Computed example of a mutant assay.
Amino acid sequence: MPGKLFKSEYLADKRLPLRLIKRDPQEEYQLHDHEFSELVIVYRGQGEHVIFGENRTIEAGDVFLIHNRTSHGYANLKDLALYNIMFDMRELNNPLQAFCRYPAISSLFRLEPELRSRNLLHLNPHELKEVLKIVHDIETEQAQGREHYPLAMAAHFVLLTVLLGRCCSEHRLPVEKKSSALLSELINRLTEHSERRWTRSEMAHAIMVSESTLTRMFKDCTGYAPNEYLIVLRLKKAAMLLLNSELTIGEIADRTGFSDSNYFCRQFRKHFNLPPQKYRSLRLQ
């Protein structure tokens, strides 16, 4: 089973469910998951981010979000250095929920980055420099621990969120911005109700676009067609259940929206290159 990082160890300060860790260099790290979310900012070197059976190349300027209970690790590193900003969305909901109404911010915190065709965001050198200024402010407040430092760290984190959101927005054309807003709204629904039998027509109607426009939007933003995205989203949830529950394969298939367990097993093997039973047994070794 993957290693697990607990909130009680990394976010023990009840005044602020937020912590920054600088990893310079980042060492190779086996598969693990957390009880909290983690914003990763790579500022030097390169390597591979291992997530859901894939090794994705990362390099300086890449920014991505790891949701809680998502297994991931690092391999084949070449002078990789990064910042981990650990936080609990449930505790930080008050400020961030308001920001999540904005498309670019929603892209940071609501879309499933592990399902996207590319990393969440790649900063150019100027953008990375500006982002690191705020990160250093968070780091300083945390290290000095002056009066009201939890409030100061939270304030800088909100500023960081806004800056990253603007970077996301500026990296898109006007049409892409509108598509991102609509798609974010739909993906929120799919994530919450992935077990439902969605048709492409229902998805398109939910955000008032044509089916052809829906397909193009999904392809542009995620690399998947709508139904393919939904299947991968279900498989992602199934993988979590395989790692963290004693449910049978049939029960997991049914719970994640697959009416036929044989079809579920075929799709799982196609995506992860392992049958569900083998995936579970490898993690239990």
Rank of each mutant, 00 (worst) to 15 (best):
F157W: 01
M86C: 06
K177A: 06
L284S: 14
I58G: 09
H34G: 05
A60I: 03
E228K: 00
T191C: 06
S245L: 08
L128S: 04
S169A: 15
D137K: 05
G165Y: 12
M217T: 08
A104W: 03
L11S: 07
I58Q: 10
R197A: 12
R101E: 11
G257F: 06
L82A: 14
E130R: 09
C100E: 06
C100G: 00
E59Y: 07
K14T: 10
D33T: 04
R266D: 14
N93F: 11
T161S: 15
R56Q: 08
H32F: 10
H156D: 12
N227H: 05
G257I: 12
F87Y: 15
P226K: 03
D220A: 09
I85Q: 00
L190R: 06
S8F: 05
T215Q: 13
R266L: 11
R197P: 06
S117D: 08
F36W: 12
N188Y: 05
S212H: 11
H122N: 15
R118W: 15
H156I: 03
F218I: 00
E195T: 05
E130D: 15
L182G: 10
H67K: 13
R234L: 07
L173R: 12
P275E: 09
L11Q: 02
E54S: 06
L18K: 09
L241K: 15
T215D: 10
E112A: 01
N124Y: 09
S179M: 08
S71Y: 04
G45D: 12
L31Q: 09
I85M: 02
S212R: 14
R90W: 02
R23D: 04
E48N: 15
D220I: 09
F272M: 03
I105R: 04
S107T: 04
R23Y: 13
V175H: 10
S194E: 08
S245P: 00
D24E: 12
H72E: 05
E9D: 14
M86K: 12
L214P: 01
F52L: 15
D62S: 06
E91Q: 13
K178Q: 09
Q142T: 07
H156Q: 11
E127L: 11
L11W: 09
Y224P: 02
H156F: 13
D13M: 06
K133Q: 15
L151C: 03
Q46K: 08
R146E: 06
Q142D: 00
N227Q: 01
R189E: 11
D260C: 10
M208V: 10
E35I: 03
F264I: 01
E127H: 07
S201I: 12
G3S: 10
K177I: 11
A181V: 05
Y29Q: 14
Q144D: 04
